[in-house]
Computed example of a mutant assay.
Amino acid sequence: MQTASRTPEQKQAGLTTARILLEIKAVNFRPEEPYTLTSGWASPVYVDCRKVISFPRARTTITQLMTAAILREAGYESTDAIAGGETAGIPYAAWISQQMGLPMLYVRKKPKGFGRNAQIEGEMKPGSRVVLVEDLASDGASKVNFVNALREAGAEISHSYVVFFYSVFPGALKSLNEIGVHLGYLANWWDVLEVAEQDGLFDKRKIDDVRSFLHDPVQWSKLHGGRAE
Rank of each mutant, 00 (worst) to 15 (best):
3 T>F: 15
4 A>G: 10
4 A>K: 15
5 S>T: 13
5 S>G: 09
6 R>M: 14
7 T>G: 11
9 E>T: 15
9 E>M: 10
12 Q>K: 13
14 G>Y: 12
16 T>L: 14
18 A>N: 05
19 R>E: 12
21 L>E: 02
22 L>G: 08
23 E>I: 04
25 K>R: 15
26 A>N: 09
26 A>V: 07
27 V>L: 09
27 V>F: 09
27 V>W: 04
27 V>A: 10
27 V>R: 03
29 F>P: 04
30 R>P: 01
31 P>Y: 04
32 E>D: 14
34 P>R: 13
35 Y>C: 11
40 G>T: 04
40 G>E: 05
41 W>C: 06
42 A>Y: 03
43 S>Q: 06
44 P>D: 07
44 P>C: 04
47 V>Y: 01
49 C>E: 02
51 K>R: 15
51 K>C: 09
51 K>M: 11
54 S>T: 13
54 S>K: 08
57 R>K: 15
58 A>W: 04
58 A>H: 04
59 R>N: 08
61 T>C: 12
64 Q>C: 02
65 L>D: 01
67 T>E: 07
67 T>W: 04
67 T>A: 15
68 A>W: 03
69 A>V: 09
70 I>Y: 01
71 L>C: 01
75 G>M: 10
77 E>A: 07
81 A>N: 02
82 I>C: 07
83 A>E: 05
86 E>M: 11
87 T>A: 14
88 A>P: 02
92 Y>F: 14
95 W>Q: 06
98 Q>Y: 10
100 M>K: 00
101 G>I: 03
104 M>P: 09
106 Y>P: 03
110 K>C: 02
110 K>M: 02
113 G>K: 12
116 R>A: 09
116 R>Q: 07
117 N>Q: 05
117 N>S: 06
119 Q>R: 12
121 E>S: 01
121 E>H: 01
121 E>T: 02
122 G>S: 09
122 G>N: 05
122 G>R: 08
122 G>C: 07
122 G>I: 07
127 G>I: 06
127 G>Y: 06
130 V>W: 09
132 L>V: 06
134 E>H: 01
136 L>M: 14
137 A>V: 05
140 G>Y: 00
142 S>C: 06
144 V>W: 10
144 V>M: 07
145 N>A: 10
151 R>C: 04
151 R>D: 01
152 E>T: 11
152 E>N: 12
153 A>C: 03
154 G>A: 01
154 G>K: 02
157 I>P: 10
159 H>E: 10
160 S>M: 10
163 V>L: 03
163 V>A: 03
163 V>H: 00
167 S>Q: 14
172 A>K: 07
174 K>M: 10
175 S>N: 14
178 E>D: 15
178 E>W: 04
178 E>N: 13
179 I>A: 00
182 H>V: 13
182 H>L: 07
183 L>G: 08
184 G>E: 11
189 W>H: 08
189 W>S: 06
189 W>V: 06
191 D>Y: 14
192 V>S: 08
193 L>N: 03
193 L>E: 05
194 E>L: 00
195 V>C: 12
197 E>S: 13
199 D>N: 09
199 D>C: 06
200 G>S: 13
200 G>Y: 05
207 I>C: 00
207 I>N: 00
209 D>I: 00
210 V>A: 06
211 R>D: 12
211 R>C: 05
212 S>C: 12
215 H>V: 12
218 V>D: 04
223 L>D: 15
224 H>Y: 08
227 R>Y: 13
227 R>S: 10
229 E>L: 13
